[in-house]
Design a protein around this nucleic acid. Structure first.
Lengths: 222, 222
DNA sequence: TCTTCTACATGTGCATCCAAATATCCATTC
DNA sequence: GAATGGATATTTGGATGCACATGTAGAAGA
C-alpha cells in the first residue's frame, strides 16, 4: 500500500496547496513564518507559478498573509481574531443544523450515531479523534443539503483545526465532548429547527474559550 | 477629472478581476457564458497569467465555475442555490448586527441615519440606490469590529448584488425598504444583541423570496 | 445517409525568462 | 560612532513559449 500516492492525477497547483497546508497542519510551519515561492517550488520540484496560485488560495482562506512584493507569511491570529472565526463558524454551523433538522431521515440520524461511536472509540488518539470530529461536523453540514454552506463551513474548520490540534495535543480535554455531540444528534432528531440551531451555536461557542485561552497562554500566536 | 483612472497603481491581477466583475455586474456577461483567458487578456492588454489568477479568485467567490482544461463559465444559480446564499448572508449579517449592537456609539448610530437618508434621497435612481444600500450594510458590518466577518459578508453581497440589480432594475420595489432599514438602526440603538440579530435575519430573508421568485420567472438563470 | 476514426484546431496548465520592486550591505560623511 | 546615500543582491509580478488535453470537422467505411 502506497498510502496517499498519486491516486488521482493532481494538478501542480493542488499539490503545492496540499504540501503547504500539510506543513502548517503538522506544525512545521508556525504562524509568523515567512514563505518563499521559490523555496516551496524547488522543494516539491515544480516552477513558482503553481505555488503562487496556491498562495493565492491560502490567502483567500486567511491562512496566509500576502504582502506585495514581499512574499507570504503564515497568518498570526490574535485571540480576538480567533474568537471571531469561532463566532462565524457558530452561525454557519447553526444554519446547517437548522436545515439538517428539516432534511434528516431516520437513517441519517443512525449514521450520525455511528460517527459519534467511531469518535468515542479513538478518544485516546488525538490525531484520529480530530479527524473523526471533523467528519462528524462535516456530516451535519452535508445533511443541510446546502453545498455552498457546507463549503464555507469547511473553510472555517480548516483554519480552526490547526489551532484545535495544538489545543487537544497539549491540554487535557476538559470539556465533555461526547455528551455535547450526543446532544447535537438528539436536537436533530427532536425536529425543532430553531432549537437545533441554538444547540449547535452553544456547542461551538462553548469550546471556543478553552482553545483561545490555552493558545494565548502558550503564546502560540507569536 | 479622470474618473477612475490609475488612482492607485493596481496590479494586473486586480485590474483583470475588476474588469470581469464589472462586466458581470453590468449584465454584459450573463450566467452560463463562457470566458477565455486569452480573450480577456488581449481586451485589457495583458498576458493570460494575471487573468488566470483573477479567474481563481472569482471561482473562490462562486461567481465563476472552472472546468479543468475547458475554461471558465459564469456560474448559473438555481433558485434554491440563490436562496441558500441569502440564508448564509442572513446569519453572517445577523452576527454582525449582534456585535454592532455591543460596539456602536451614539455617533455611529447618527452616521447610520445619515447613510439611510442618503439612500432615501436616490430612491428613484436604481444604480445609486443599490450602491448606497450596499454601503449601509457595509457600515453595519464595520461596526461589528470584526474584519474577517465583514470580509465574508462582502463576499456574499458581491454575489447577491448581481441578482439584486436585475431585480431592482426590472421589478418595481414591492417591499418597504426604507422602513425596514430604519428598524435595523433602531434595533442597534435599543441595545439588545439577540433582538438586533433577529431583526437583521428577518430583514435579509424577507427580501430574498421576491428576488429569487422574480429571477426564476424571468429565467435569468439560463 | 449515417457512423466512426483520424487529423487538425483551439485553449489551458505549467516552465522559463525578464523587469520592477524591495531589502541588504558597504562606503562615505558628519 | 551614527547616519545617510548608493550599489548590489533577492525576490516577486508578469510575459512568453511549449506541451498536453479537449473539441471539431472532414474522410472513410458500412
Amino acid at each position: 500500500m502506497y498510502g496517499s500516492e498519486t491516486t488521482t492525477p493532481m494538478s501542480a497547483e493542488a499539490e503545492a496547496y496540499e504540501y503547504i497546508l500539510g506543513k502548517i497542519r503538522r506544525g512545521e510551519l508556525r504562524p509568523g513564518m515567512r514563505l518563499k515561492s521559490e523555496d516551496v517550488a524547488s522543494e516539491i520540484g515544480m516552477s513558482r507559478m503553481p505555488v503562487r496560485e496556491a498562495f493565492g488560495r491560502l490567502y483567500q482562506l486567511g491562512i496566509l498573509t500576502l504582502r506585495a512584493n514581499r512574499g507570504a507569511v503564515v497568518t498570526e491570529f490574535t485571540p480576538e481574531q480567533l474568537m471571531e472565526v469561532f463566532e462565524i463558524r457558530s452561525v454557519l454551523e447553526g444554519l446547517a443544523m437548522r436545515r439538517a433538522t428539516i432534511h434528516a431521515t431516520d437513517k441519517d440520524i443512525e449514521e450520525l450515531h455511528d460517527l459519534l461511536e467511531r469518535m468515542r472509540r479513538v478518544e485516546e488518539d488525538v490525531e484520529q479523534w480530530l479527524t473523526r470530529h471533523t467528519d462528524f461536523h462535516k456530516a451535519i453540514a452535508r445533511l443541510s443539503k446546502a453545498q455552498r454552506l457546507a463549503g464555507d463551513i469547511e473553510k472555517t474548520q480548516l483554519l480552526l483545526e490547526i489551532y484545535m490540534r495544538l489545543w487537544v495535543l497539549h491540554a487535557e480535554k476538559p470539556v465533555d465532548l461526547t455528551g455535547d455531540h450526543l446532544r447535537l444528534i438528539e436536537a436533530i432528531a427532536a425536529g425543532n429547527p430553531g432549537e437545533a440551531e441554538a444547540v449547535m451555536r452553544d456547542h461551538v461557542l462553548n469550546t471556543a474559550p478553552a482553545v483561545v485561552e490555552f493558545l494565548s497562554k502558550h503564546n502560540a500566536f507569536g
